[in-house]
Amino acid sequence: MVLKTTTATLTSSPLPLLSSFLKPPFFSFPKLPLLKPFNSPRTLQSSSAPQMSWLNKLGFGARSSTDSAVDSSSSTSSIAQGPDEDVPAPGQQFAQFGAGCFWGVELAFQRVPGVTKTEVGYSHGYLHNPSYEDVCSGTTNHNEVVRVQYDPKECSFDTLLDVFWARHDPTTPNRQGNDVGTQYRSGIYFYTPEQEKAALESKDRQQKLLNRKIVTEILPAKKFYRAEEYHQQYLAKGGRFGFRQSSEKGCNDPIRCYG
């Protein structure tokens, strides 16, 4: 940036010359280009804090903690904290789980016989209709969850609980491996009193097996916000590199959760 100057004869007082430079605007910011989506959506989570910091300063991306506090005290909070009013298909039931990055968790449930549908999304936060960037900011309290639809005649809730415990470490608060944040917390979110009872009993059994404190929260299912389409069945569709992983029923191939 080059400031244009004019030749001036100094007088006994420099104020006229200085005033010509001090008149606003001193300079102007260039127009910023529109931000494009990241090629690897999970990359954002591994370093969400610093990226969100400078994006927020420029007016892009997730809301600030102040904005979230405003949302939390508004009507949007009560909407987000309301029950999941979606209805499963006839003869089916819903279950909802949080066990770290929802990509790998969803694939694990896709492979279970009797599971008829899976969706990844956000729940148990204070912001209505959150985006992925909102959740990654760590200010909305949402959890990355998988909502499972299953046929209770072919798949018991206990079977789903077994998959849930096997898929993650329930003793690490707000963390699964390198993924750190409240959106990675361990949680079972029940739809019926029977699911709640089964979840509590299963947690007790698991506690004895691990001999470590389990931090899994067991709470009523709240409003489910379906995640962006590119997150749905992410690993089965091939992920970032196009390496598709099988979602066939009964498949026990290792699940590789990559960005």
Rank of each mutant, 00 (worst) to 15 (best):
L161G: 03
T192V: 02
S74T: 13
F27A: 14
L107I: 11
N129S: 15
S40P: 00
S202L: 10
R212L: 08
G177E: 08
P220D: 07
E228C: 10
L35Q: 12
T43V: 00
C257T: 14
D86R: 14
T6V: 13
S246M: 04
N211F: 02
E196N: 13
L127G: 02
K23M: 09
F102S: 10
H168E: 11
K153S: 14
D151T: 04
S137C: 03
V105S: 09
T116H: 02
L35Y: 09
H128W: 02
C136K: 08
V120K: 03
Q232C: 01
G91W: 10
Q149Y: 02
L17G: 09
Y189D: 04
L55P: 04
R175I: 00
N174G: 13
G239I: 09
K31R: 12
V87A: 03
S64H: 02
Y150Q: 05
V145A: 07
K153M: 04
A199T: 05
C251E: 03
S47I: 08
Y126T: 14
H124Q: 14
K213D: 14
S75N: 08
N143K: 06
G91C: 13
S47D: 07
N178I: 06
Y230S: 05
T7C: 01
C251M: 00
A236Q: 13
K208V: 10
R226C: 02
T6C: 04
Y234F: 15
V135C: 04
V163A: 01
L161V: 04
N56Q: 15
P25C: 05
E201H: 04
Q245S: 13
R185G: 12
G114H: 05
S46A: 11
C155K: 09
S28P: 02
Y230P: 00
R175E: 06
A199E: 02
L44S: 11
R185S: 10
G181E: 10
T43C: 01
E154T: 14
F190D: 03
R205I: 10
V215M: 00
P30S: 11
L160T: 08
S246W: 07
L15A: 14
L55M: 15
P37V: 08
P113N: 06
L10F: 12
F26I: 14
H124V: 11
T66I: 13
Y191P: 08
Y122S: 06
L235W: 13
Q245F: 13
A8H: 13
F224E: 08
E248A: 15
Q245D: 11
V163F: 00
V148K: 02
A198N: 02
P30C: 01
E119D: 12
K203L: 05
P152M: 07
R111P: 07
N129M: 06
C136W: 03
L44G: 07
T9G: 06
G98S: 15
T66S: 15
Q93C: 05
F29L: 15
H168V: 10
S202I: 12
P88N: 11
L235M: 13
T76F: 02
A8E: 13
L219K: 15
D71Q: 09
K4D: 11
W165N: 07
E133C: 03
N178L: 06
Q206W: 01
V112P: 09
S246Y: 09
C257R: 01
T172H: 07
F27R: 10
K203V: 05
K249D: 07
L15N: 11
G82C: 07
K249T: 06
F164I: 07
S65R: 06
Q93I: 00
